[in-house]
Design a protein around this nucleic acid. Structure first.
Lengths: 230, 230
DNA sequence: TAGTGGTCTAGACCACTCA
DNA sequence: GAGTGGTCTAGACCACTAT
């Protein structure tokens, strides 16, 4: 890795921040100046600085210049967990069990999330995921049947809802919310967790241009945690 | 935003994925071909594709080409919460209360996290954060006094530990872990939460080249959640 | 209005990896 | 070996904004 490569410069700049040469909140030299100092193209300096800015270490403004961020470690990249991969990565055997699937009226909070009108029904699917036959996570999912009519006939005992949707729905947008919840009786039974145990919850919603597809809460086993990928 | 700009291309490519023209798992045209098709520089195509790859929508390999990722929404960017900002953003009044500060021997798990040897002492600091005088989060922090000797004299009633450290320690690396925990008696009292309530926990460790600085767990009030920043 | 970052271009060379 | 993405350069123009 050359010193004047993007990554090389990145490291160099990181060093100048760590050493305190570029103090917190201080203005650092302009791209042109740095390109001159390191004898490389401004584009290269730009990309190095941008990558640091993406991570929240620098704040950049046109004309205002580039400053070291007051509060380091502000952004984290999270790999959104895919249960099958998580389980098989640890060497455990993956499996899942379809707990229930029914067409019913969702409560108002789910209705809002899926953008349904009152009295409209949706498909409610519960799935238990296992690692080496031990409960790993419990999934509580609502699917909009208007968007995915075939869902009621999908062979969800053989393939998990998630994987079936990925194969069936060409593509979708999504968002994610992390939270904590006490296990309710059903979930604690399924996960073999203590009653009221604190569980880590990942909620995902996915949609396409013309409507919501699914809203899903995954309750992980006790002690589960999620590490930032850097 | 021009069609042949980086963001314009990004949108166009997203459209081709959404529409199913570029199916999940399928190989898409090479950068050179796309640059030709849209009559722009290959660099521009490259940056558009890279941004999609960064978000986990594409997988790229030299010689292997670029494929649509089988599992969309795989990565999320998280803004690591800064309590003062979180509170003031909602319009509430921010304050904090120093609960305790003592030099003591940490348990083995904390000792490992800070990289201390047995019987070495560390500073244990507990802080309660409030929004409009209502408990918002409880912080349980260990600081390595070898790295930050002045910590015992810091005016932590006036300035929160976190902000004091940011001002005092020039810069540091860090990592983050998210999890869930049941409130223990002390925490539930402080946060005025139900006993054993499920709390969202953010644990952070920060270090410099020559040693660990601090390890901190923040327990948020009941119902708190963390949304992905896209 | 001037200085800074944001971005595009055209060309080049390199690194990886598939066949 | 050949095709693909990864990256650097030198130059250019533009957009924003602090002063």
């Amino acid at each position: 890795m050359s010193v004047t490569s993007r990554h090389g410069l990145r490291q160099t700049f990181l060093g100048r921040i760590h050493s305190g040469e570029w103090a917190l909140g201080a203005l650092i030299p302009s791209e042109a100046r740095l390109a001159d100092e390191y004898d490389c193209a401004r584009t290269t300096v730009n990309r190095a600085l941008q990558s640091l800015a993406d991570e929240g270490l620098l704040i950049r403004k046109r004309k205002g210049g580039t400053r070291v961020c007051q509060t380091p470690v502000r952004k984290a990249k999270i790999d959104i967990p895919i249960i099958r991969e998580q389980v098989t990565e640890t060497g455990a055997k993956y499996s899942h069990r379809l707990v229930s699937r029914e067409l019913t009226e969702p409560n108002s909070s789910v209705r809002q999330q899926l953008g349904l009108s009152p009295k409209q029904k949706a498909v409610h699917i519960k799935t238990l995921y296992l690692a080496n036959e031990r409960p790993y996570a419990f999934e509580d999912r609502w699917v909009n049947p208007a968007m995915v009519p075939k869902i009621m006939d999908a062979p969800l005992s053989e393939i998990s809802v998630n994987e079936w949707l990925v194969k069936t729905v060409p593509f979708s947008n999504g968002d994610v919310v992390f939270s904590a919840a006490n296990a309710n009786p059903e979930i604690s039974t399924q996960l073999k967790a203590k009653v009221a145990a604190a569980l880590f919850v990942v909620q995902r919603r996915t949609w396409m241009d013309n409507g919501f597809i699914t809203s899903v809460k995954v309750f992980y086993h006790e002690g589960y945690n999620l590490k930032s990928a850097l």
